[in-house]
Simulated assay, not measured.
Amino acid sequence: MTKKVAVILSGCGVYDGSEIHESSAVLVHLSRAGVQYDSFAPNVDQMHVVDHTKGQPTEEKRNVLAESARIARGNIRDLNDLRVREYDALIIPGGFGVAKNLSTWAVQGKDCSVLKAVEDTIKAFHAAKKPIGLCCISPVLAAKLIPGCEVTVGCDTECEKWPYAGTAGAIKQLGCTHVNKQVNEAHVDTKNKLVTTCAFMSNSPLHEIYDGVGEMVKVVVKLI
């Protein structure tokens, strides 16, 4: 039978939605593996809209589902319509939309809340013992919702290559284990069926980001 994976997007654009290169890499690697996938997003307003030429918020209002449809080429559904029984695995690409639209991590860090539809979905896949793939900042969702899990966001020592290393410390404060990994590697928490990779948490060439996302997807598919 054809394997089916649900992909949750959080908008369109690194500073206020899903990171487009990561999202594309996820879909390309799933396609190459012969896996059927469906894209979902919450039908809610974005936290804010960022002018990506300036990196600054604007007064504009945008909807997460409508913006995510840009990446999914219009083939997307409301997250509330996702039925876990119909899918073998879940994958969530990164981007600041994860920390702004799927959760409040961007403003509250480890004390954040997670959008109920996202929380319910992650917990349901986990309870069903179905693999969950997370890249870039999205592993913080697992750290918040799955006690004692193991994830990676790359390296826990800040430097030019690892500008977001402080995230690893917040993950540890949540009682979870952070495992240092290189950009082309994925970490597998076998107990919880979590597969994580750092992607753009690392200041690395695009092809290395792409390869790391590919490794994450490959392991998720293998765990199905």
Rank of each mutant, 00 (worst) to 15 (best):
L82W: 06
Y15D: 04
F125Q: 01
P57F: 14
V220Q: 04
W162D: 02
E19R: 08
D16A: 06
F40Q: 01
H48E: 12
Y164P: 04
L194K: 07
E59C: 12
S204Y: 09
S68P: 01
A72K: 12
G55L: 12
A72I: 06
F200R: 02
K222P: 06
T104W: 10
K129Y: 09
D16N: 09
K100W: 03
R77V: 03
Y164S: 07
E67D: 12
A41T: 13
K110M: 08
K193E: 12
S113R: 12
I209Y: 05
A117N: 15
V5H: 11
T196K: 07
A142E: 14
R32K: 13
L134S: 02
P131S: 01
A128L: 05
I8E: 08
V5E: 04
E215C: 06
T157P: 07
L9T: 03
T152W: 02
K130D: 00
R77I: 00
V84W: 05
E215N: 05
L30Y: 06
F96G: 09
E119D: 09
L30N: 06
S204G: 08
V14P: 02
N203Y: 07
S138T: 14
G133F: 05
E60G: 11
A143F: 13
T121G: 11
G94M: 05
T121P: 06
P131H: 03
T167M: 15
F125C: 05
K123A: 06
K110H: 05
V219M: 10
E67A: 15
V183R: 03
G166C: 13
L134M: 10
I91P: 01
P93V: 15
L27N: 12
R62F: 01
D38A: 12
Y15R: 08
E59M: 15
T167V: 14
T190L: 15
F96R: 04
A186C: 12
C149A: 10
R77W: 05
L145I: 10
L90D: 01
A25P: 02
L134E: 04
K110R: 13
I146P: 03
T2S: 10
V217E: 08
C159A: 06
I137W: 01
A6W: 11
T58G: 05
I171S: 03
H21K: 11
M216P: 01
C159V: 02
V28S: 14
G13P: 12
V44A: 15
Q108E: 11
P139D: 10
V188D: 06
I91R: 07
L134C: 05
K130I: 00
W162C: 06
A142V: 15
A69P: 13
E22L: 08
S202T: 10
G154R: 02
A124D: 07
A41G: 13
C155L: 10
S113D: 07
G169W: 12
V14D: 07
A199V: 03
T196V: 07
V5C: 09
E67I: 10
S39K: 12
V49A: 09
K161F: 09
K218C: 02
V5G: 11
V213T: 09
G109N: 01
R77S: 06
K110S: 08
D38K: 14
R83A: 08
K100V: 04
V7A: 07
G34I: 07
L206D: 05
A170M: 15
I146M: 14
S23H: 11
M1S: 14
G95R: 04
W105S: 00
S202I: 09
H126L: 00
H48S: 11
I122S: 00
W105C: 00
M1T: 11
V50K: 03
K100E: 00
K218G: 08
